[in-house]
């Protein structure tokens, strides 16, 4: 009897606790765009969002950075974001196929580049030797992002294959969970050299601490970064304004400053 009173009390308390949360979802005050952005955009997008908010007073931008794949899994479950900026155009396209976004909202905003990066203290002459510096016998460990799920890792692997040095280097590779962790492997000295995103090598925290050589674009499949506006967008006109800003003159200038190529530039360079 008393046990049933106890369990009844718990069910009631749970009901009250859950009830207290009804209707108090995350409805933002004022106009806001909720952005899920790939981790490699971290530095560029902070600046871009500031510029956008200055240009469009009254519209706020709330951004979460993370891995494109994690965001994809969350958006497939209708996570409350309005705009998705993926490091890989493939994820937004899959969301479109699943009916989570419309094809018209898809856009290409940048092409990523990879670089061979060493910390300042390294004796390796990366700027001069480029990717061949990886073959140096004093290089014990080479950090790249995990090619299984990180687009920059796939690009690094493809570039090594392109230059016919992958077989020689295979045993020396270590894999970071994402491009930032890969850079940390190298910066900490645990790996001697790494293949990371140019956007990271140009980031304020890394710019002073090492040097890099850009890997030629034709050595790896294009890292096409694309995005979509999700179907459950709260303020469609605000989200469209932000999208227009990113692919507009001002947004592109900021992205270029952080080492992202614009899709047309990549075409021109490849030719």
């Amino acid at each position: 009897m008393k046990a049933s009173v106890y369990w009844g009390g718990i069910v009631l308390a749970a009901g009250v606790a859950l009830g207290g949360c009804f209707g108090r979802g995350n409805t933002p005050v004022g106009r806001i765009v909720r952005v899920a952005a790939a981790a490699d955009l971290q530095f560029a997008f902070d600046e871009l969002a500031r510029a956008f908010q200055t240009a469009h007073l009254g519209i706020g931008v709330r951004v979460s950075y993370g891995s494109s794949g994690t965001f994809y899994a969350q958006l497939a479950n209708e996570a409350p974001f309005d705009l998705y900026l993926s490091a890989d155009i493939d994820y937004p396209r899959r969301l479109i196929k699943q009916g989570k976004a419309v094809a018209e909202s898809e856009f290409l905003y940048a092409v990523g580049q990879i670089v061979v990066w060493v910390p300042e203290r390294s004796a390796l002459d990366v700027p001069w030797r480029g990717i061949n510096a990886l073959l140096d016998p004093q290089v014990k460990k080479i950090a790249i992002a995990n090619p299984q799920h990180a687009p920059y890792g796939r690009a690094a692997q493809a570039a090594m294959r392109h230059f016919g040095i992958y077989a020689q280097l295979q045993d020396r590779l270590v894999f970071g969970e994402n491009i930032a962790q890969t850079a940390q492997f190298v910066e900490s000295g645990a790996a001697d050299v790494g293949v990371i995103a140019l956007s990271l090598a140009l980031a304020p925290a890394f710019r002073q601490r090492g040097c890099y050589a850009v890997v030629p674009l034709e050595a790896y499949p294009r890292i096409e970064q694309g995005g979509v506006i999700l179907n459950w967008v709260q303020d469609r006109s605000a989200a469209e304004l932000l999208r227009a800003f990113i692919i507009g003159t001002q947004g592109r200038a900021i992205l270029a400053q952080y080492g992202f190529l614009l899709p047309q530039e990549a075409e021109a360079l490849a030719r």
Partner: peptide, 11 residues
């Protein structure tokens, strides 16, 4: 039952 979703909320 509640009109709201569980993922991405505090509950």
């Amino acid at each position: 039952l509640t009109g709201s979703r569980l993922p991405f909320t505090f509950v």
